[in-house]
Amino acid sequence: MAVAFHTPMPTRIRDGVTFKEASVLLRRTGHPRSKGTLQRWAQEEGITTERVAGTDYVSFTAILKLHAVRVRGDDN
């Protein structure tokens, strides 16, 4: 499934995606998480987000790292 990235893109976050885009991309991992779960995790961990034109962007790298840690915790 292709993910359409919205414009304008954030300026401070190089690999910025929306939480919805991140959720769609994580489906391929076999450990999908909802947009809301990713937002909650990011807030709990203090991950930087940037709001552009009313849309929140987050680093996909940061989400991938957080996802890996949380999924390991879920599976143990």
Rank of each mutant, 00 (worst) to 15 (best):
E45A: 13
T29V: 03
A22I: 04
D75G: 00
T55P: 01
M1K: 09
W41A: 10
T11G: 02
I63M: 06
D56G: 00
E50Q: 10
R33E: 09
L38H: 01
K65W: 07
R72Q: 14
A42I: 08
V17R: 14
S23V: 03
L38D: 05
G73R: 12
T48N: 09
R72P: 02
W41C: 08
G36I: 08
D15L: 09
L25H: 02
A2M: 08
H31R: 11
I63R: 04
K35G: 00
T7W: 12
D75V: 15
L25C: 03
D75H: 14
R12N: 08
I13Y: 06
T11K: 15
A68Y: 02
R51P: 00
R12S: 11
Q39F: 10
R40V: 07
D56K: 12
I63S: 01
P8S: 08
G46K: 05
H6K: 13
V69D: 08
A68I: 01
P10K: 10
R12A: 12
R12Q: 13
V52M: 05
K65N: 06
T61Y: 03
T49P: 08
R28H: 12
A42F: 04
R14G: 01
R51Y: 04
F19M: 12
T61A: 10
A42K: 07
V71P: 00
H31M: 05
S23A: 08
F60G: 02
K65Y: 02
G16K: 09
G36C: 08
A53G: 00
L66I: 05
V71A: 04
M1N: 07
E44C: 08
P8H: 05
T11Q: 14
S23H: 04
A4I: 15
A22R: 02
G73W: 13
E50P: 02
R40C: 01
G54S: 04
R51T: 12
D75F: 11
T48W: 15
T29F: 01
G73L: 14
K20T: 06
T37H: 11
L66Q: 09
H67P: 00
A2L: 07
A22T: 01
T11W: 04
W41M: 14
G73Y: 09
F60V: 03
M9L: 15
A22G: 00
V24D: 07
M9H: 11
G73S: 10
T49C: 13
G73A: 11
F60P: 04
A53R: 13
F19R: 02
A62T: 03
